[in-house]
């Protein structure tokens, strides 16, 4: 029972784009309940370029605000919607890049085997600046000093881009992510990994490599539904995320009130 509770807790942790994960990397974890998630992720201007493929000059305008919604549709499929807003460049880029992607659970974590998840960005976007396709594995262990969870994954170095504006989305071509980006873009390109250590039920430490930067941070469960994390990009700049997770299987207020004895 305790094991299940702590497993459920660890799985409620999301990355900056609202997907189950650590700080910036996605993981192979899967949420059972609480199918609906809202989250916010702040990325400092110095590291905006490392997450969004299209950096904007000067660097001081690269602060990113991620607004994310996640919905678990089945036990093996969920969908994520992200808006990447640049508060310092709103007059030239508008609301910012939008990203819709899906995750599939290929394998449920068992005692011996890790949880395996594949994340796919449906092709067709003219500017897939946040597009990423990856495979992630996560395995957790209960130890005497707390819970340890290891994540490893591989992000596709290629991305599907719509060839021309207003063209039919059949005109797609594979582009190397590094060539698509103006700068040497590395986020989730190739191998990424991370580890979470949770000495207590309500908080933990994280370390990760997202194939571009090494990051460390802490997270805490403030409320049953609310998680907060603060982390550092390479020990140089601070970032944070907030995440709320809710169940969609709820009863109307009137019925709940009556059941309580109203």
């Amino acid at each position: 029972m305790l094991l299940m509770a702590s497993a459920g807790f660890a799985a409620a942790q999301v990355n900056l784009m609202g997907k189950p994960g650590l700080m910036t990397i996605p993981s192979g974890a899967w949420f059972g309940e609480r199918e609906l998630g809202f989250s916010f992720g702040y990325v400092p201007q110095e590291y905006g370029y490392s997450i969004n493929a299209q950096p904007i000059d000067p660097v001081t305008t690269n602060t990113l605000n991620f607004y994310n919604v996640r919905a678990g549709l089945t036990k093996w499929m969920d969908v994520n919607f992200t808006i990447c807003y640049r508060p310092k460049r709103k007059e030239s880029v508008g609301i910012g890049d939008r990203q819709l992607d899906v995750r599939f659970r290929l394998h449920k974590e068992t005692e011996k085997w890790p949880g395996i998840v594949i994340g796919i960005t449906p092709p067709g976007s003219e500017a897939p600046d946040l597009g990423h396709d990856y495979l992630a594995l996560t395995k957790s262990f209960e130890t005497k000093i707390g819970k340890l969870s290891f994540t490893g994954g591989y992000g596709s170095p290629y991305i599907l881009v719509k060839q021309e504006r207003l063209g039919k989305s059949t005109d797609l071509r594979w582009v190397k992510k590094k060539e698509y980006s103006e700068k040497d873009y590395q986020y989730l390109v190739g191998v990424f990994y991370g580890v979470t250590y949770q000495p207590v039920d309500f908080a933990g430490l994280m370390f990760e490599y997202n194939s571009s930067t090494y990051n460390v941070g802490v997270f805490a469960k403030v409320k049953e539904w609310l998680h907060v994390q603060v982390y550092s990009f390479e020990g140089k700049s601070w970032a944070f995320s907030l995440a709320g997770n809710f169940s969609l299987d709820f009863k109307p207020k009137e019925l709940r009130k009556y059941e309580k004895g109203g």
């Binding site: 919905a71 989305s169 969609l248």
Partner: peptide, 21 residues
């Protein structure tokens, strides 16, 4: 979900293509 419905779709027409929710 009972109280809540969530849907995803892909669309194709004379006017173009889209995905949405």
């Amino acid at each position: 979900f009972g109280n809540v419905d969530i849907g995803l779709f892909v669309s194709s027409s004379n006017n173009g293509n889209t995905v949405g929710f």
